[in-house]
Amino acid sequence: MLTEVKNQFKVSLLSIKYSILRSMINKSSFLFSVLLMFISNASFLVQWIIILSVSDGADLSMKQILFLWGIMAGAYGLSNIIFCGVHYLPQYIISGKLDAYLVQPKSVLISIATSQTSMSAFGDLLYGYAVVLIASPSVITFLYASLFIITGAIIYACFVTIMYSLLFFSINFRDLVTTLTRIPTSFGTYPENIFSGVLKVLLYTIFPIGFIVYLPVRVLLTNNILIALIVILFTIFMVVFAFVMFNMGLKRYSSTNLMNARV
């Protein structure tokens, strides 16, 4: 069991390394993407300066916004560096590339997740750390931020996996599901204060941005270690859930082969 995990880990590391190397083949193009993503993220601070200028009476602070953007950008960035492959799941299912992973003695999901990376994601990750540390330059913030960037990256990848696993049951909903996978990131760059009611429930359940960003921001603002534990537990739950869903989907794939219309 232990050696199995060790071997899987070794392959995954190699796979991530090779994906990253591939994205860096053209160095200038890579650096350019990273830089512009960084600038693009940074310009949203202008948006918040404007919002805060008309927000007298509201419970919003620049520090909160910086933490929010830091964790969201960082988690999204890390997720798309290490697990970018999950976004390719529909393509892999349709093109039959999934078959190539099925004949390998390793976890299909992990192999796919680590098979791709995104250049601009490095810009997101850098930006994430930068703003968090601007907001509060301390070792404890750095450690907390690192923890939540990792849990956020994992939760987000699991969320995308769960959504795309639904496609094993009918590939026809590809566009709809793809739209749904983008929802957490849309909400993740706005503070939770502005949302209420049913929506807030959704953001802590189906679209788990609450656990990716909102709770971590609370921890950064209040140092509440209990909330940090809840986030970690939820991350574990998501990992298990994602594997269960994906394996159910694979089973379905093996019995129907979705593309049966083109036998």
Binding site: D99, L102, V103, S254, S255, N257
Partner: peptide
């Protein structure tokens, strides 16, 4: 595909 484990037989 059935021989390589990609598909399960009916």
């Amino acid at each position: 595909k059935m021989l390589t484990g990609i598909l399960t037989p009916t």
